[in-house]
Amino acid sequence: MKTDMDALKILHAGALRKPIKECIHILWQKYPDLKVELDYAGSRACANAVAQGKVVDIIALADYKVFNDILIPKFVDTSFVFATDQMVLAFDEFSHGSQEINNHNWMDILLGEGYIKYARSDHRLDPCGYRTLMLWQLAEKYYNRPGLYNLLENNWSNLYPKSIDIAIALLQGKIDYGFEYLSVAKQMDMEYIQFPPEINLSDPRLADYYAQAIVTVEGNYPGLEMEIVGAPIEFSVAIPKNSNQKELAQEFINILTGPQGEAILDQNGLIPC
């Protein structure tokens, strides 16, 4: 893709698409002629792109640990936590079993009928993917259902690169259910099942409990694997060291993390923090 040297380049997790766009509109009030290039992917895919040479001015991801694992200290000094969220099971009124499903029987509905399609995002590319695997591990313990994790992992129908793709697939009727962020489900006006705090990765008081869940992904070097430990969901933003627009990038981050950004995040189902 051809890039404009003067444009503000923002690379972000797909789940942040809507709030990021709304914050740009606030920046445009001050700089109406400012060119902005927006790109998005799963957070790990975003970080790997920067590590492989992609030049951006702002990078906003769904997990600060992705910064720590892939970008700090070589490409980024530090990241700033700005929002939290929780995992939910999203669906719509046309999803098979939508009349029966609730927060007690969701796993039985998903696994009970062969024709029900449920999806997760790819844990190698997207935090929503490894958070889904963590949720399944924690659900096995929480509901005392030995083997639940393997059953859920062996029976999903679709795997997507990022969480926003799950929401789109739901809208298109390609799947019945998707493990998704609450914010995305709200932004897309979907129905959703809320999970108990013990498994939805939302509560810092349960950080030690979440840490029982571990997902293995590819490491930074070929052949190396690394473990991602369960933790409360925290979205984070940073200015890469090679940004060409550091002052402008900081202005954008000030909007995102200031009162106007907080209102936008709130309206989009995220919890500013």
Binding site: T84, S202, A207, E234
Partner: peptide, 19 residues
Amino acid sequence: YELIQNFKAMDPTEVVEPG
């Protein structure tokens, strides 16, 4: 994050959501 963790410590019977 820290305040939420310590909030529980002050009154374990009170459940206040992080949000």
